[in-house]
Design a protein around this nucleic acid. Structure first.
Lengths: 203, 203
DNA sequence: ACAATAAAAACGAACGTTCGTTCAGGAGCT
DNA sequence: AGCTCCTGAACGAACGTTCGTTTTTATTGT
């Protein structure tokens, strides 16, 4: 039934093991012995599939970078106007991240422990996913300011990623006025209309 | 002349040493021996000042968290309208971070290696700095949407922090359309006026 | 001002542990 | 037989921490 060879299954088990261990305790604190145990093989067996601990991580991040899960979500949004798209996409993106509160660790671990050395490769896989998305959005109804679509996407991702991560990290420490049920809506409002109210006709 | 005792001086030297070593190579890769060497004392001497490696970091992050440098900058901005304030503050904040491309490591290290366990304490030191700032801004001229000032601040920080960090991390990998000289201005424009152009009088 | 004394700080070898990696050999399968 | 995969003991290096000892600094008494 499954076309997966034994070797490939073990390989995936090793990647799974490291993934979950990093989520739980970080990269540095994760030992090859723990990976072996969780993957269900002996210590030495790992080296039949990967030449080093670092190499396991490199494969992990290139296969399962958090963004590879977020972008399809943004791509799946159906909307007929830019405003609707933004509202729906922001909501979905935050929800999606909320369902995987873990995978942020992977992203940050790569930056901290590997100084972001995999970012170019990861980003090269992302760009082809993001370009058509920018195109799709540009074709929706609604007039936007004269800002390049990719810059808008960058701002969008940054804004709602920061919303999510500050919520997770600062959550209980935040003053009530900083985190309410409407805060996400306020972020959407700022992104769509800005913080300023344009004066209609003087007053 | 200086009222600093010998002990206090080496204490600071140890903190300095760990700070620079973390910037260069991360927390896990930094050994007590390296700290001792850079601080100019023997390995065992460290333990006259700190009970453990973790404890050095805890003191470091509570003394020198990146935000403690950014907030005074935002506080120093003189402006008579909200629009001017936002433009100036965004510019200054990005510049300030650009001059310390290093201290972001400290922030991320804390999250990755210590699971953000110091965040509540750090944040408690930050809140009193941020509340009066929100008050000051609320008193500037200009009409803003009905959004709590602290939420605006959260959005502001998130937006321009993300601008900075994506620039640093993704920089050379980004498509040209995503990173130009005007991109920061576009971010400011989005924050002030949103991406949408409100229709004036139908058409 | 100076010597006596206690406290603080520095030393560096040693300890026990854990780490990533290697390797000679054994299974299981075709 | 030959190949892929696995085993687990062993290796050497590096780690954080401890400890007995010495040196430096600060405080006191005179």
């Amino acid at each position: 039934m499954v076309e997966e060879s034994k070797g490939e299954r073990t390989r995936q088990a090793i990647l799974d093991a490291m993934y979950s261990l990093i989520i739980e305790q970080g990269y540095a604190a994760t030992s090859m012995r723990q990976i072996a145990q969780r993957a269900g093989l002996a210590l030495g067996g790992i080296y039949n599939h990967f030449p080093s601990k670092d190499d396991i991580f490199s494969n992990l991040i290139l296969d399962r970078h958090p963004f590879f899960e977020i972008l399809p979500v943004l791509n799946s949004v159906e909307a007929d106007s830019i405003e609707t798209y933004v509202r729906t996409a922001a909501q979905l993106m935050v929800e999606e991240m909320g369902q995987h509160p873990d995978f942020i660790n992977l992203l940050l671990t790569e930056i901290v422990e590997f100084k972001g050395q995999h970012i170019p490769q990861v980003f090269n896989k992302i760009v082809p996913m993001v370009l058509p998305l920018g195109q799709r959005i540009a074709n929706l109804s609604g007039t936007t300011r004269n800002i390049p679509p990719l810059v808008m996407m960058r701002a969008f991702m940054g804004m709602f990623f920061s919303y999510y991560i500050t919520g997770v990290l600062l959550g209980p420490s935040m003053p009530p006025a900083m985190q309410t049920e409407q805060t996400l809506d306020h972020f959407v409002e700022i992104f769509l209309h800005g913080i300023l109210v344009e004066k209609e006709n003087g007053l």
